[in-house]
Design a protein around this nucleic acid. Sequence first.
DNA 1: CTGAAAGCGCTTACAG
DNA 2: CTGAAAGCGCTTACAG
Lengths: 338, 338
Amino acid sequence: MKQVGVVDIAREAGVSTATVSRVLNGAESVTGATREHVLEVVARLGYTPNAFAASLRKGRNDAIGIAVASISQPWHVKLIRELRRAIREQGFTTIVYDLEHSESVLIEHTESARRLRLAGMVLATGDRIDGDEVRAALDRMAGTVPLVVIGQELPGAGWTTVAFDDVAASEQAILELLGRRPKPVLFLGEAASSYLSEERRIGVERALSQFPDLLAGSELVALDAGMDFSVGYREVQARAGALARFGTIFCVNDELALGACRALSELGVRVPEDMMVIGYGDVDMLPYLTPSLSSLSGDVGGVAERVVRALLARIEGGHVDVGPKLQRKIVHRESTGG
Amino acid sequence: MKQVGVVDIAREAGVSTATVSRVLNGAESVTGATREHVLEVVARLGYTPNAFAASLRKGRNDAIGIAVASISQPWHVKLIRELRRAIREQGFTTIVYDLEHSESVLIEHTESARRLRLAGMVLATGDRIDGDEVRAALDRMAGTVPLVVIGQELPGAGWTTVAFDDVAASEQAILELLGRRPKPVLFLGEAASSYLSEERRIGVERALSQFPDLLAGSELVALDAGMDFSVGYREVQARAGALARFGTIFCVNDELALGACRALSELGVRVPEDMMVIGYGDVDMLPYLTPSLSSLSGDVGGVAERVVRALLARIEGGHVDVGPKLQRKIVHRESTGG
DNA sequence: CTGAAAGCGCTTACAG
DNA sequence: CTGAAAGCGCTTACAG
């Protein structure tokens, strides 16, 4: 069964394919009566234009890619929602890519973006993108697809960056928590593969360096095993005997913090009385946990807005000043004493 | 700056565009030397084929759509991962659609699927799809795009369904829990808009109907407000005075169960001593909550495998017997007494 | 306001 | 094993 095309519609409606195309693309010039008639035929024959033919002819694709490190992480899902909303307001469609924290998947997606001649691409990941292969793939993609990266700045990159000031956020949070309880900190971060962890660790160190004795007692862990609940759980369990020396567990994301809390509860360590716990991202579920979890929150809608503004500027061949890094704020809940 | 195309490669390599195409599509017939040379030129000029032109000419698209009710729900994300893996093994690419629990978004996506001439579509949602408009859009899509639906069966539908036997799962779970504690049940489900809730409610009723006095004391709630943490929390809070009469809170998903637990904890109701709580889906985080949450789990990988098998059969114009409904099993954790 | 015709960039019978 | 040429289904100058 052959699908119906413009020519079928044109023949049936007694007009040219040009007129059909004009009606379907909302051209002003078509007479009311003609328009009605064509639309009636389109509906009757159940015609849907072939997107490939249209894009090929137009020489452009109105889709913008949204690539996130992992759709398993609620923060990224929130970001996707906000970006979609902002992008659709500008008349573009979106296509979501899940990187699954994998370099090879990212590289594949850059190729897909090129093949599809995407109008633009947004990349949000805390994983490093400065490895040789990844960097080359991104540079290659950015050559034809305007790119905006969320979260990390690379020297000499051919794209725009929108980011939170995580160094400052971490520093300030640690100072505030040390004010509540001046004891060493256990920082659960990720190894060299994570740009975000690096930034956040630097902030923590910066704050602690004001108190050399506390810094000496602190432990800044660099994990290699991903960042989910199980890892937070395992790392705290592994330090069961040494927990008394810490006053705060500072986690590079909310999932780690959740896992850490579970381990503490099993070990009989009370939160926040014996240990404060805080995460990063301020995901929706945090108020509903027991204890409810404190976190460093950031304005996702604000990020989306900036990203889209920057992307549109790039698409139109210009640049735009995205302004200073965005600020985070600390949200206290039970896990830091409310 | 015009993008480079096959003709540029052909000219530079001193061959025809046909040969370039053959090399790029892995045809057997090309000589080793020619192949090497063409690939060298492709790499040197940084050529990426135009996906629109290729698909238009080939008359097909090797992409399969995966539409889920909401990517905010971890169970759906797990499903996406498994489906992607299974689909890619078959040589297709995937494209993810987030329905955001919205009928209009679903309808838009069916149109997108038609325009893109997708090779197939997988739809996973617990929301009803038998409303007039939605049903019409799905029928229309299924006319050209092979469709497999996960989770709900519709009479006379032109697609294949793969589903869990949720009626049986709920019935069995309730019977088991009544064995542990013969008290009335508070069921938190969704209103008429949810097919899944309906199935699960029926199972619960079926089990309770064996114990008329318990059925009389039970309450089967039909919520209208979505299914996230906040709803579970609010509904339990709203029944603060009446909780003593129930022995179990049975939730239609894990997020509701999490919210319910938080409310119970605030009200000083101990889980599981005073109240058992169980959810649906067995999401990854459950073991790390306090208390850890019991749930009805299902084999997501098994679903993905069946779906892909059914979809391939449809794509090739045939049908396939997907077999009986899949079984769930109850996973006991602290919230039901371990 | 409308139509005839060219052409977007590929792939694939067909011929050699 | 390779090339010349047709054609996938649209949209858009161009002409009327």
